[in-house]
Nucleic acid binder design. Sequence first.
DNA 1: TTGGATGCAAAAGTTTTGCACGGTT
DNA 2: AACCGTGCAAAACTTTTGCATCCAA
Lengths: 142, 142
Amino acid sequence: MKDCESAAFSNGLKKTKQRSAILEILQKNSQPVSAEQIFLELSEKKISASLSTVYRSLEAMAQKGVVTKINISSEGKALFELNTNMHRHYLVCLGCKKIIALDYCPLEGYEKKLEGETDFFIVGHRLDIFGYCPECRKKSGS
Amino acid sequence: MKDCESAAFSNGLKKTKQRSAILEILQKNSQPVSAEQIFLELSEKKISASLSTVYRSLEAMAQKGVVTKINISSEGKALFELNTNMHRHYLVCLGCKKIIALDYCPLEGYEKKLEGETDFFIVGHRLDIFGYCPECRKKSGS
DNA sequence: TTGGATGCAAAAGTTTTGCACGGTT
DNA sequence: AACCGTGCAAAACTTTTGCATCCAA
């Protein structure tokens, strides 16, 4: 997916090494990441980028639809992920805080049904599912 | 529902006028509210309660299972609602910000299915649906 | 009376912003 | 060259905490 990057900068966003590196981190992570996580990963890679640059880049990319900002973290920090233009739902482990993206949407036909019932024009939904992953189940014996 | 209050204080929580008032506000609001909203409503009612008391009370009530803290606000602040022990799902109008509680859960059997597929122990989920209500549809012509 | 609850102020944590400077186009 | 991006520091904002005081049980 090399051209994910070119696509990301075809909308007026200037391409800088910081932004390319942020994009790369978002691509490599299978789960949503916080701005601080990105900042730390950049430091590890010896790529200079201040935390405010990370925030501003993510904000800019979110405006262009390249990334999506989500607020499901129980720690009150925002998370970011590449915008795949697909429905994404998450399975969140309450033990280790791991977040797993589900690959399909259990509400396929439901929105249309609800439109009929309520006369709303339905744009989308957010669904997150909480529980304990296999590893955490073992640990706690539940 | 007068005994919602007595139930709320039957678990070791001390009953104070601040906490009773916070509970009342949560009861009257059909939608989740932020700590600050509660703080402001308390001021309007001339009930003295500092913001930290609001946070501490909500935290204590959340620990006892009286209220639920949720993180769906796009503004990055936590929201709180009475824990009804029932599934609550909301239909949110993006035009007028109205929030309507749905009376049933479209994911009834889905959690069990997912448990089988993922080996998670699933505790619950959060589902919110976004769109435009009939009034806002007319206004914007969509 | 006694332990928990409150108020105030200060601290901690996340995110935003102002401004001067630097890098892309 | 023009404009956008960046770094740094400070500010804004939400939430937590320390400590003295107060109040419900």
